[in-house]
Amino acid sequence: MNLIYAKIVEVFIEEDMRMGRVQVGGAIKKVPLDLLTEARPGDTVLLADGVAISKVRPDESP
């Protein structure tokens, strides 16, 4: 089980699922975006086990 931050570069539909190509550092992965109805390219999202479960709010900094 794995939790990572990733940036959406593209949103598309595949096999009836809302999918995204997301970028982690320099690597790109395909993940379902079904649980984030309003996520758009450019958004950073949190992935849990290969599924995006939350948008990351861009204005938060430590």
Binding site: N2, I4, Y5, Q23, V24, G25, G26, A27, K29
Partner: peptide, 13 residues
Amino acid sequence: ISEEVKGACEILG
């Protein structure tokens, strides 16, 4: 370490 490898290591844990 490169950004690419760092990212891939995050993906793969």
